[in-house]
């Protein structure tokens, strides 16, 4: 039987030459990874199908169509970025829990080697819990406030480039969009706290909204000063401008300190966790959200 080598089907071409490369002339690493993963998968499937039914069109369709290639490599790029973000997050939380535990004279996380998988176990447990909706809560506000809140926060996280070749979007006014998305969060927290029909969550929501709005003002002023120094609202440009000059933390160290404090307050971490105050308001505006929510 005529046997075509697998290398006929699994070809690693340069992503920047394929039509439909979305980033112009800037090399983008996650797109490259996604592109290569898709080529691997499509080449394998095409080769297998070709072995059984030689000379079919599905195989050529899978490997030769630039639209399909583009679409799926973007999908896989998103998966890659999400996976990297997830693992970084996991590592940071693990490190914090372990160190905090040792300060309190106890061994903190125990699942997995050195306790690394504790967060995965906790996440799995939360997923498996029952989603209870209080019957007297306002259903639309209850669901949508949370969705929009998490959605915009994730959008924000993905707008920040991690290096010269690791970015998703490259808007000319990226910083302005960031401003806008930041401002949605306090309102959604207020709606979430209010819609649960519970006096505690209302108080917690009001406190959270007050805190977040007031700490946004210094944060946005610092953003504006950085944009002024770089001369552009494009985040990549700001990063590049620091190559030529020096890291902006040095001339703007005061801004750096203020920004760190304001960011901790925005995230409601200790010592700014009055809205979540465990002592009197149980979980603040998140009291009635159980399970995955």
């Amino acid at each position: 039987m005529a046997y075509n080598s697998i290398l006929d089907w699994v070809k690693f071409t340069d992503p920047m030459t394929s039509s439909g490369y979305p980033y112009g002339d800037v090399y983008n690493l996650p797109y490259d990874i996604g592109y290569k993963i898709w080529e691997l998968i499509s080449g394998l499937i095409a080769w297998l199908i070709d072995l059984i039914v030689p000379g079919n069109e599905v195989s050529t369709f899978l490997t030769e169509t630039p639209l399909l290639t583009n679409l799926l490599s973007i999908t896989l790029m998103v998966v890659v970025i999400f996976a990297v973000g997830f693992i970084v997050n996991l590592t940071m939380i693990w490190e914090e829990r372990k160190v905090l535990g040792r300060m309190m004279d106890r061994r903190a996380t125990r699942v997995g080697p050195l306790g690394y998988f504790q967060n995965l176990a906790d996440g799995l447990k939360t997923f498996l819990k029952e989603n209870i909706t209080p019957s007297s809560a306002d259903k639309k506000g209850y669901m949508w406030a949370l969705t929009i809140l998490i959605g915009t926060s994730v959008l924000l996280a993905f707008m920040i480039p991690l290096s010269g070749r690791w970015f998703i979007v490259d808007y000319r006014t990226g910083l302005l969009i960031l401003f806008g998305l930041f401002a949605i969060a306090p309102f959604m927290i207020l709606v979430a706290g209010w819609s649960q029909n519970n006096k505690y969550t209302l108080l917690g929501g009001m406190r959270a909204a007050a805190q977040m709005i007031s700490y946004e003002v210094p944060m946005l002023i610092i953003f504006a000063s950085v944009a002024l120094m770089a001369g552009s609202l494009n985040i990549n440009d700001i990063v590049n401008a620091q190559h030529e000059y020096m890291w902006y933390i040095i001339p703007q160290f005061l801004g750096f300190i203020v920004f760190i404090i304001a960011a901790i307050a925005e995230a409601e971490r200790i010592p700014f966790d009055l809205p979540e105050a465990e002592a009197e308001l149980v979980e603040g505006w998140q009291t009635e959200y159980s399970g995955m929510k």
Binding site: M103, A277, E278
Partner: peptide, 12 residues
């Protein structure tokens, strides 16, 4: 300690 959010005092 727990009431005021200071969990380290609780454990010590």
């Amino acid at each position: 300690g727990t009431d005021l959010g200071n969990l380290t005092v609780f454990l010590w």
